[in-house]
Design a protein around this nucleic acid. Structure first.
Lengths: 72, 72
DNA sequence: GCATATTGTCAAGTATACTTTTCAAATTGA
DNA sequence: TCAATTTGAAAAGTATACTTGACAATATGC
C-alpha cells in the first residue's frame, strides 16, 4: 500500500458532541478500544467505519479524516 | 462491526478517466487485484485507500462510496 | 486469425483492523 | 475524599484487507 497516512480530528469532533468513546462506539457498532485506537492514530479505520463516524458525528468525512504525507 | 455495507461507483469513475485497473492501481499504490476486488464488492477498502482513490479519480469521496443498509 | 490488453477469480500467504479481557491513571462530581 | 466515569494501553485472538502468482475469458487492434 501507498506510504501515505490518514490523520483525523475525531477526538475534537466527538468532544463537540459531548460523547464518550463508549457512546460513540455504540453508535457506530464497534468497541470503545477501536475508537480509542483510531483517535490515537494506532491504525487507520476501514472506509465503512470512517463513513459511519462521519454520519454519527454529523460532519463531512473530509473534515474528520485527511491524507498526510502523500506523493511518494 | 456494524452490519452496514459500503457500496461504490469506482468502475464508472475509473472508466470516465479512461484508466485500466492496472493504471489506477499504480496511481494509488496497490495491486490490480485489490482494485478489482473493491470494484466487484469483495471487500471494503481501508479509509486511506478510499481517500487515495477519490484523489486520483478527482471525485469527492462521497461520490465514490456510500453506506448501504444502515440503521439496524 | 493472431497477438496483446484487460478483467475476474482463486489459492495461499502476510499485514492490519477489530475484539475481548484486563490494568492503571487521570477526571469529575457529590 | 471517595466513588464512578473516562481514557490509554497491552496482549492474545479473530476477521478482513491486501499481496503474489497464476489461469481462463473476453475484448481490441492489426
Amino acid at each position: 500500500m501507498s506510504k501515505a497516512k490518514l490523520g483525523n480530528r475525531l477526538k475534537v469532533a466527538r468532544a463537540e458532541k459531548n460523547l464518550s468513546q463508549e457512546e460513540l462506539a455504540r453508535l457506530v457498532g464497534v468497541t470503545r478500544q477501536t475508537i480509542s485506537s483510531v483517535e490515537t492514530g494506532q491504525y487507520c479505520p476501514s472506509a465503512l467505519l470512517a463513513f459511519l463516524l462521519a454520519q454519527k458525528l454529523e460532519k463531512p468525512i473530509t473534515d474528520l479524516f485527511f491524507i498526510e504525507g502523500d506523493e511518494p
